[in-house]
């Protein structure tokens, strides 16, 4: 029997919005897949694009960034910088022919528990369709 593919999605989430949103999803007893592995950071702008590259090359099937909506950053402008860096990274991925659809950035506020669950479900579905990340098996990396 073929082993069932359960994606692993490394998710970097900001403490003030998305992580609290995930908490809300939990306390509201909303279902979201176990594929989401949360890593809490103080601000989404703390995420060096290198973290995403490392995650991808080490075999994460998807990489998710969660942050506050533009204008709502706890540190005022952090997420605007995140947005630029994310855009630069996806541009690098598409120029090099790497699968940029494995990267996702979503703005999820502390009150958006249902949105967190929805994003998790959507992104997991998408990754399931894409299949496993072949970098995980690549022993020449």
């Amino acid at each position: 029997m073929e082993k069932e593919f359960i994606p692993r999605i490394t998710s970097f989430v900001c403490k003030w919005c998305t992580y609290t949103g995930a908490d809300l999803a939990g306390t509201s007893r909303l279902q979201y897949p176990t594929s989401i592995i949360l890593l809490k950071v103080l601000c989404s702008s703390r995420i060096d694009p290198v973290f995403l590259i490392k995650s991808y090359l080490k075999g994460a099937d998807g990489v998710l960034i969660g942050g506050c909506h533009p204008g709502d950053c706890h540190y005022e402008t952090g997420n605007y910088h995140t947005r630029r860096r994310f855009k630069i990274l996806t541009e690098i991925f598409s120029t090099l022919g790497l699968p940029k659809e494995r990267l996702r950035l979503s703005w999820i506020s502390a009150s958006e528990g249902p949105k967190f669950a929805q994003v998790s479900n959507e992104f997991t579905d998408k990754i399931e369709n894409l299949g496993p990340n072949n970098a995980r098996e690549n022993m020449f990396l």
Binding site: P49, V50, K54, L57, G59, I88, L141
Partner: peptide, 25 residues
Amino acid sequence: EQKGALRLPPDTVFFQIGRLAHMSF
């Protein structure tokens, strides 16, 4: 354990993509 083999020195592709993210613009 995961791959059964490793490249040495490791992370050469990672180094280049990382550098691209830091300064390519």
